[in-house]
Amino acid sequence: MAGVASKGGEVRSDTYRDSRTWLLLPAWLTLVVLVLVPVSLMLVYSFLTKEFRGGVVWEFSLAAYDQFFCDRGLFGDEPCSIEWNYITIFWRSIWQAGLATLFCLIVSFPTAYFIATRPQSTRVIWLFLITIPYWVNLLIRTVSMRFMLREEGPVNNVLVWIGIIDDPLQMINTSFAVQIGLFYSYLPFMVLPIYAAVERYNFTLSEAAADLYATKYVTLRRVIIPSIQPGIIAGCILVFVPSLGAFLAPDLLGGAKNFMIGSLIEEQFKGNAGNWPFGAAASMILLSMVMIILTLYARQQSKALGAGS
């Protein structure tokens, strides 16, 4: 986990140095066969000419990128103006994923801090409780959430029974439901890295801060958060990236009324559109965005390490 790297800089003795090549071979094979080759293929496809009803013609073309960025009207014969459709779809996905990350962070930070400050013996139990629901398949959890949120579902029934609302709320098929779904799906991916970071945190630093008349808030902001920042960032990435490509929650909880990045790409390969180069181009643009985020993180990390040594 990224949080572990907080003591970077020192030389680590490598007992298995001699057999490194062999031990890393499976990882290299996975990387090349399952990541590098397919991604390169997608990159090439995104610059090819579309064949009607799926497939590609091996002729160079920028049509896929043109379609992404240029609005040429319903009939495709107008001059290029900015295409907002796909920007809207990407922005929606980013917004949803960003909100899910924020909510996860708000819930996870106190939770992780709480668990990390329990006695060693009970920490395992708390962590176990956090992970239990996630042994169930994501599809089944999402469908269950559908039952929870529907008009005559338990959530509405309880709210009406308590008297908070008079009529059931429309929750299913809204972006609120998608939010709940994303938040719930990826919550442990935020809790666990933050926990790992807080667990390594040297609590005498908090005492030292208090001795220097730092308030609780200042201690949190200037001492605790900077110390566990790698864990927070790792958690944010682990929630944000899968949320960005999520399609189960938008389809099952949001009613599939609006494309998300994931469903837009799927439509190009499996749906009526059958536009492989465009699907490949959209994937490449998504991949570039994720790469930029990860690069920023890596730079921030190395800068933090540089400052620490």
């Binding site: 319903l74 495709g76 796909y86 009324k257 009526n272 536009n275």
Partner: peptide, 17 residues
């Protein structure tokens, strides 16, 4: 036909954007 299908695709994207 391919031309009409392209318009249908645009209509569908407009609808679900």
């Amino acid at each position: 036909s391919e031309d009409v299908q392209k318009v249908y695709d645009t209509i569908w994207t407009n609808l679900k954007k």
